[in-house]
Design a protein around this nucleic acid. Structure first.
Lengths: 154, 154
DNA sequence: TTAAATTCATTTGTACACGAATGATACGCT
DNA sequence: AGCGTATCATTCGTGTACAAATGAATTTAA
């Protein structure tokens, strides 16, 4: 006695919304996918967390910026990016200076050590992405990334 | 002077891996998609966090279980599920009892209030899923969920 | 040019998330 | 029976994540 799904005998007005099953909801699966990714990341890049890596990588991409701006670039709010920067600063991976003209701002830049660190890790980061996407074929990967981006942007 | 991508003049051995761009990595987009989902969730279900909701929903699905087992069902480790349960318990949404035969275990069950709460919220939760997936067509949604599940399972 | 609105950084408080360690209990095996 | 291993719950420490409040500085607009 199984529950019929996608059966012809019962037409669903919309999607699969018949009963609520946690395991079928986007949010739940999204969270699990994220967990798997974080595990892969941690296995390959053990001395930096994903947010820390993201901050360094972005800094490497765009050069010195203010703290909040960097936060926007890596999708972290002001409180979150501050914590991340503080920990990077404590390890001398980034440097902080007051902004020239705007005295509210704090300019974050890569230290030499930070530059070396991030440059050395970029190949590993690519492998993290590859391993995360390994369950999908190349074709599926392309589709998935396109749809995921659409979802993320809203 | 733009960097050529997918160009014919330069054959890439694998995917798009030419330079590392944070904004193109799965992990980063996954995190952003998750952020968007969380915002949608919070807007519709303001008095329960997603993990709290997940725990209640699962409890509603499977009935009373031990704390750790519930954690496995909702993909949270022992330390995390404990915190979630504690907060639900503090609001009398769940009840805790010692297990009959196994004195290590703590059986978690929905309180009446918890049952009412979760049952009242299920329609909202479906809308959260729908709104999250709104940027995709039905066809894209089906594809996306299939690939996402593949990714999450590994 | 002041007053109002905005931006930047910071702090506080709450809530995950997970590795690692711990003590109590249960189980497998000899 | 007894010992080693595994499981369950708990605790500790670190690191996001975000809402909300704050003060200082800048920008906008009247």
């Amino acid at each position: 006695m199984t529950v019929e799904r996608d059966g012809l005998g019962m037409q669903a007005d919309n999607n699969t919304a018949d009963v609520y099953e946690l395991g079928e909801q986007v949010g739940f699966i999204l969270r699990k996918a994220n967990q798997r990714h974080l595990a892969i990341f941690a296995a390959r890049i053990s001395d930096l967390t994903p947010p820390q890596f993201a901050a360094l990588a972005k800094l490497h991409e765009v050069g010195a910026t203010s703290q909040n701006q960097l936060g926007q670039l890596v999708a972290m709010d002001a409180a979150t990016i501050k914590g991340v920067i503080d920990r990077l600063k404590a390890r001398d991976l980034v440097a902080l200076e007051p902004h020239g003209s705007d005295r509210r701002r704090l300019v974050v830049s890569l230290s030499d050590k930070g530059r070396e660190t991030i440059e050395a890790l970029l190949p590993d980061a690519l492998e993290v992405s590859e391993e995360t996407l390994a369950p999908l074929t190349q074709r599926e990967t392309a589709t998935f990334l396109r749809l995921l981006a659409k979802l993320a942007e809203g």
